[in-house]
C-alpha cells in the first residue's frame, strides 16, 4: 500500500466541490435545527396540554428513529405521495429536523436554568409574557447554550456523509465515487478524514472564542 500523490491531486478538485456541498448542507441544516428546535422547546412548554403533548410525541418519534431511515423516507418514500424533494433539500431537512429534537433539549435546559425570580421580577415590572421571553429569558438563556450548540454543529457536520445515501454529492459521496472507479480507497478516504478533522478543529476553536465573547456577565 503506497500513497499515490498523482491520484490524490487528480481527485482533489472533485473533493473540494463535495466539501462545498458538505458545508452548505451543515449550515442550512443547523439553521433549520436551531429554529425548529426553539419551536419544539416552546411548544413543549405550552399551557395547552394538547400542544405540549403532540409536540413532545413528534419530537420523541424523530429522536427515536435513525437519521438514515428518515433520509430514506424523505427522499425515496415521500415521492409516493407526490412530494418530490431534490437530494440536497431532503438531506438538509432531514439533518435539520433530526437535530432540532436534540437542540430542543439544549434550549429546555437553558430556559430552565433561568431562576424563577427573573420571571417574577418581569411580572412585577408588568412585562407581558412575550416581552418577558424576548427581553429577559431568551437573552439570558442563550449564552450558556453556546458550547452545546457548537457541539451539535460539529456533530451535524460529521453526520453529513449519511447524505451520500440519498445521492447528495457531498465530500464523502465524491470520495466514494472516485474510489469505486479505481478501487483505490486510501487517498480519498484519508483526504475526507483530514478535511473533517481540520474543519472540526477550526469550529471548536471558533466556538471557544464565541463562548468567551458572550460571557459578558457572571
Amino acid at each position: 500500500m503506497e500513497w499515490n500523490w498523482a491520484f490524490a491531486f487528480a481527485i482533489l478538485p472533485r473533493l473540494l466541490e463535495g466539501a462545498k456541498i458538505t458545508i452548505v448542507a451543515t449550515f442550512l441544516g443547523f439553521l433549520i435545527a436551531i429554529v425548529i428546535g426553539l419551536a419544539i422547546a416552546l411548544g413543549r412548554r405550552s399551557q395547552q396540554a394538547w400542544i405540549a403533548r403532540s409536540v413532545g410525541l413528534c419530537a420523541d418519534f424523530i429522536r427515536g428513529t435513525p437519521l438514515l431511515v428518515q433520509l430514506y423516507v424523505l427522499f425515496f418514500v415521500l415521492p409516493n405521495i407526490g412530494i418530490v424533494l431534490s437530494p440536497l433539500t431532503a438531506g438538509v431537512i432531514g439533518l435539520g429536523l433530526h437535530n432540532a429534537t436534540y437542540i430542543a433539549e439544549v434550549y429546555r435546559a437553558g430556559i430552565e436554568s433561568i431562576s424563577r425570580g427573573q420571571w417574577e421580577a418581569s411580572k412585577a415590572c408588568n412585562l407581558s409574557i412575550g416581552q418577558t421571553w424576548r427581553h429577559i429569558i431568551i437573552p439570558q438563556a442563550i449564552p450558556p447554550m453556546v458550547p452545546a450548540l457548537a457541539n451539535y454543529l460539529i456533530a451535524m457536520f460529521k453526520e453529513t456523509p449519511l447524505l451520500s445515501a440519498i445521492t447528495v454529492y457531498e465530500i464523502m459521496g465524491e470520495a466514494l465515487g472516485a474510489a469505486s472507479r479505481t478501487y483505490q480507497y486510501l487517498e480519498p478516504v484519508t483526504m475526507v478524514g483530514g478535511f473533517f478533522l481540520i474543519i472540526s478543529l477550526v469550529c471548536a476553536y471558533l466556538a471557544r472564542v464565541l463562548e468567551e465573547r458572550v460571557r459578558i456577565y457572571q
Binding site: 431562576s115 425570580g117 427573573q118 417574577e120 421580577a121 412585577a124 408588568n126 429577559i136 437573552p139 439570558q140 459578558i216 456577565y217 457572571q218
Partner: peptide
Amino acid sequence: QKIGMVFQHFNLFPH
C-alpha cells in the same frame, strides 16, 4: 400597574 414589589433576592436583570 398599581403595585410595585421589591424582592428579597433583588432579581435584577443581570444582562
